[in-house]
Simulated assay, not measured.
Amino acid sequence: MKKAGIMNSQISAVVADMGHTDWLSIGDAGMPVPRDTPKIDLAVQPELPKFIDVLKNVLTEMKVQHIYLASEIKTQNPSQLTAIKEILPDVEVTFVPHENLKKDLSQTHAFIRTGETTPYSNIILESGVTF
């Protein structure tokens, strides 16, 4: 049994399988996921687990070089944007329209669904390299 880091076996396996520039997405309870994108559903009830808690956990084992966020987060959920920037302060951010972000989910290795119910709490993480 693992002592620390990502305890969810599906998430751990996806992160371990990723290479440089591969994508992984984490999002809120309402984000539509393309049929061909594997969905790891962690949602238990509204707000459980929180988006930011899942993101922090994934970052314990994943090197991220770039993130993609919906441009709408700037005005519709600025507190979530601040939280994301606080835990990824040196990572480049690209803002795209929410509709584009939804389409981009088809290119991710998996989508991790949280219980988050605040708007635009969705992110695509681009894997970095550790050497």
Rank of each mutant, 00 (worst) to 15 (best):
M31G: 01
P119T: 04
I124V: 12
P32C: 04
V44P: 01
H109D: 12
K3D: 09
L48T: 13
S79L: 15
M1R: 12
G115T: 03
E92P: 00
A16C: 04
Q107V: 01
L55Q: 07
E86M: 09
M7S: 13
N57I: 05
L24F: 11
E61W: 09
E116C: 01
P49E: 12
M62V: 04
T130K: 14
N57R: 11
K3E: 08
P49D: 07
V64M: 08
T130E: 15
I67W: 03
P78I: 06
L101Y: 05
H66P: 03
D28F: 00
E116S: 03
L59W: 04
V96D: 06
R113E: 01
L88F: 06
D90C: 04
A83T: 01
M1W: 13
S106I: 04
S25D: 02
K2F: 13
K63A: 14
G30Q: 02
K63H: 15
P49K: 04
L42F: 06
T130M: 10
V129G: 12
N77H: 13
V91N: 05
S9I: 10
A29K: 00
T118Y: 02
T108P: 00
V44N: 07
F131W: 14
G115D: 08
K50G: 00
P89Y: 10
I84H: 00
M18A: 05
Y120D: 03
D22H: 12
L105R: 02
T82G: 06
K85C: 08
D17E: 15
E116R: 00
V93F: 08
V58W: 03
G19S: 12
S127E: 14
T130N: 15
R35E: 12
R113Q: 09
D36W: 08
M31W: 02
I67R: 02
S12W: 07
I6Y: 13
S9Q: 10
P119A: 07
K39S: 12
T117V: 15
R35K: 15
P78T: 04
M62A: 14
Q65V: 14
E61K: 12
T108A: 11
P46T: 07
G19Y: 10
G19E: 14
T21Q: 11
D104S: 09
V15M: 08
Y68W: 09
T60S: 15
T94E: 15
W23C: 10
S127L: 07
K63P: 08
I87T: 10
K63Y: 15
T75L: 05
D104Q: 14
K103M: 11
E72C: 09
P46E: 13
I6D: 09
T37S: 06
T117M: 15
L48A: 14
K102N: 10
V91G: 05
L88G: 01
G27C: 00
A4E: 12
I123C: 00
T108E: 03
M62D: 03
D41R: 05
